[in-house]
Amino acid sequence: LKHLCRKALRSFLTTYQVLALPIPKKMKEFLTY
């Protein structure tokens, strides 16, 4: 489930946009992995 969620997010968010999100650092590391 997490993998699918990440894949969906990565499909419409660039790494830069993910880093700009107001989310915890650990979550950013997970999303930009």
Rank of each mutant, 00 (worst) to 15 (best):
S11D: 03
T15V: 14
T32L: 13
L1M: 06
P22H: 14
R6H: 04
K28R: 11
A8R: 05
Y33D: 10
L9W: 11
P22R: 15
I23N: 03
K26Q: 06
Y33A: 14
K26T: 05
T14G: 06
C5S: 07
L19I: 06
Y16F: 15
Y16P: 03
L13F: 10
T14Y: 09
T15H: 00
P24E: 01
S11G: 12
F12S: 02
H3P: 04
K25T: 06
F12M: 07
L1D: 04
A8S: 04
V18P: 02
S11A: 14
P22N: 15
K7T: 04
K7G: 02
K26G: 09
R10N: 07
L21M: 08
A20N: 11
Q17I: 12
R6C: 04
S11M: 13
Y33F: 12
P22W: 15
I23G: 05
T32G: 05
K28C: 09
L9Y: 07
L19R: 07
L4N: 04
E29Q: 04
T32V: 13
K26E: 06
L4P: 01
S11C: 13
K28A: 10
F30M: 02
Y33V: 10
T14E: 10
V18Y: 13
L19H: 08
M27T: 00
H3V: 09
K26M: 07
L31F: 08
P22K: 15
R6S: 06
F30V: 02
L1G: 05
E29P: 01
Y16Q: 12
L31S: 00
L9V: 11
K2L: 09
Y33R: 14
L9H: 10
F12Q: 00
C5P: 06
R10W: 08
P22D: 14
L19Q: 09
Q17C: 10
V18N: 14
A20E: 10
F12K: 00
Q17P: 02
I23M: 12
C5Y: 08
L4I: 08
S11T: 09
T32K: 14
P22V: 15
Y16D: 14
P22I: 15
K7I: 08
K2V: 11
L31Y: 00
H3R: 12
T15C: 10
A20S: 09
K7R: 10
E29F: 00
A8K: 07
S11K: 14
A8Q: 02
K28E: 07
Y16V: 15
K2Y: 07
K7V: 07
C5Q: 05
E29M: 04
Y16C: 15
K26Y: 03
Q17E: 13
T14R: 13
S11P: 07
L9I: 09
C5E: 01
C5T: 08
K7Y: 03
T14P: 01
H3W: 02
K2R: 02
L31T: 01
I23S: 08
F30Q: 01
M27D: 00
A20W: 13
T15P: 01
F30K: 02
L31K: 00
L13W: 08
R10L: 10
R6D: 04
K2E: 03
L9D: 00
P24I: 15
L31A: 01
K28H: 05
P22M: 15
L13Q: 07
S11V: 15
P24K: 14
L4E: 02
L1F: 11
K7M: 06
A8V: 10
L4Y: 12
V18T: 12
K7P: 00
Y33S: 14
C5A: 12
A8Y: 06
T14I: 12
Y16G: 13
Y33L: 11
P24V: 14
Q17A: 10
R10Q: 09
L19K: 10
P22S: 14
I23T: 11
L19M: 06
Y16N: 14
T32W: 14
L1N: 04
K7C: 03
T14K: 13
P22Y: 13
C5K: 09
K26F: 13
S11I: 15
L4F: 08
C5W: 11
Y16I: 15
L1C: 08
T32Y: 13
Y33H: 10
K28F: 12
L9M: 08
L1A: 03
A20H: 12
T15A: 14
H3F: 01
K25L: 05
I23V: 02
K28D: 06
H3G: 06
L1P: 00
L21I: 01
V18F: 14
L1R: 03
V18D: 10
K2A: 08
K28Q: 06
R6E: 06
H3D: 13
Q17K: 07
